[in-house]
Amino acid sequence: MKWALLTLLFTIAAVLTGCEPLMVLDPKGPQAATQAKDIMLSIGIMSVIVLAVFSILVIMLIKYRASKQSKDYEPPHIEGSTLVETICVGIPVLIVIFLSIVSVQSNYKVEAKPTGYGDKEPLIIYASSSNWKWHFSYPEENIETVNYLYIPTDRPIEFKLYSYGPITSFWIPQLGGQKYAMSDMVNTLHLAADVPGEFMGRNANFSGKGFAENTFNVKAMSETEFDKWVKEVKKTAKPLTEDKFAELLKPGHLGQSTYTGTHLEFLPPPEGENGGHNHGSSHSTKMEKDGNESENSSESQQHHH
């Protein structure tokens, strides 16, 4: 029966090699690379442990099966040995210490401005979620997009995350891990894209009926291209008014759309110590409960790629 397990493992390995690289293990930015490196390292170490356990188990089972022993064999009484147990504690402790050091270092890395971009100021983008959409505000460029995100490749990006409604989680697997967006505070997520390309982004935290489709597209491009896009938006897109934004916030799914101006001006994000606790009571932007499902805003130019 052991072969059954082995066959299964081989099948999985075969399927694996036949496939495209898994998204998380195919990083396109420094943060995702740090995380992928940690993941591969831990998979390596853990495989050794799994192999050790498997082999001890197999050896024990082969050697000490009742059928392999004489009928009158009486297993001895063994209390345990300090030496063996020290080893069983010692090796895991060493592994845990090693992984802790790696983990702590990576923690500080992913929580800081990505390295390797010189002293370039990070581009700040406010990413806020509402049921079940993402709003991206570029205060520096003074534009705002819905459900898609354009970023330059040669600048670090600093996302400011918050939510109009349930907790969501902002995640672009190929650029880096996720972080929660919540209604009463702003979280910061540092990402950067090393190469141009299109990436999948989504809300990873369950947020109700429309959760599965709560995705957005990310396109990384060179800085010149990015600037060109910003200029074009400023020329063609309609301004984002307070009424328009209130309409966008209604629950439902929307296509992609673009605006000049940002909602930050008339509806600032929560602020203050620990996120400022008055958000929601001072601004009355309570979402209407029954908005139009999959209402499609086509007022400004649609971006397809």
Partner: peptide
């Protein structure tokens, strides 16, 4: 006996999830 190997897989992936920087990618 079947518990030991299967649980080991579950257990070691737990250690992987415990590495918080990497957890940003596993979470949810």
């Amino acid at each position: 006996l079947l518990f030991i190997p299967t649980f080991t897989i579950g257990g070691v992936t737990g250690v992987m999830l415990g590495m918080s920087a990497a957890d940003y990618q596993y979470h949810n």
